[in-house]
């Protein structure tokens, strides 16, 4: 942009304020379209593979293969999310950094606790594969739904809140659908909600 310091008309000033603001906001916050798009894809592909591999389902590929691919996609998404967020927050210090870090850790700790609880049920109570499967679909959808709603409250985003409510409905529905179709609820309702949000944010970024 030119460093021209000529006098500005009020209309030019207002236009400059909004264009500069949009540019700064884009650079300071990680792309929501990218983050939701990436996680939506991981979720959709990963759980669909799990469905295709699960015993009692179509069994089109070995369960270990689906598990390895899904785990790799999750690790990749975690790494990329961390990099993208760190890049956006480069050179910024102050209270918003703390709130961002606390928010990020809430997701991580929430999923760690959920994992521990689900493994605990399997190991301590020896629950059936069916119950295990239902635990692993309803739990993540519930945690994701609640945290998405919390993020929506913070960002004052109604579309994000609606996606959160949808995830809660999907969490409840997945249990009633039963196995192995619950994995498809997780893939399409869960991944679909995130991909829908990605589209929403991509469209918003284009008009900004």
């Amino acid at each position: 942009m030119a460093e021209d310091d000529g006098p500005l008309s009020p209309a030019e000033s207002l236009a400059l304020i909004s264009s500069q603001r949009a540019r700064v906001d884009r650079s300071l916050s990680p792309s929501q379209a990218l983050l939701f798009g990436m996680w939506g894809t991981t979720w959709l592909v990963g759980w669909t593979l799990m469905f295709l591999a699960t015993p009692g389902g179509p069994e089109l590929l070995p369960l270990w293969l689906a598990g390895v691919v899904f785990a790799a996609a999750i690790i990749g998404s975690v790494v990329l999310s961390t990099v993208v967020s760190a890049r956006a927050g480069r050179g910024i210090a102050g209270p918003s950094r703390l709130s961002g870090a606390l928010y990020g850790w809430t997701w991580t700790l929430g999923f760690w606790a959920l994992g521990a609880i689900n493994v605990g049920f399997t190991v301590k109570l020896g629950v059936s594969i069916e119950v295990t499967s239902l635990l692993w679909t309803s739990g993540p959808l519930l945690v994701m739904g609640l945290l998405t709603m919390l993020g929506a409250a913070q960002r004052r985003s109604i579309p994000e809140y609606v996606a959160g409510v949808w995830l809660l409905l999907a969490a409840s529905a997945s249990v009633y659908v039963g196995t192995p179709a619950n994995l498809l609820v997780l893939a399409f309702a869960g991944g679909g909600a995130m991909l829908g949000l990605a589209t929403h944010y991509a469209r918003q970024a284009k008009t900004a």
């Binding site: 700064v24 906001d25 300071l28 050179g91 910024i92 102050g94 209270p95 918003s96 950094r97």
Partner: peptide, 8 residues
């Protein structure tokens, strides 16, 4: 554009 209290 930075939240109040943040530094760059």
């Amino acid at each position: 554009a930075l939240p109040s209290g943040d530094r760059i």
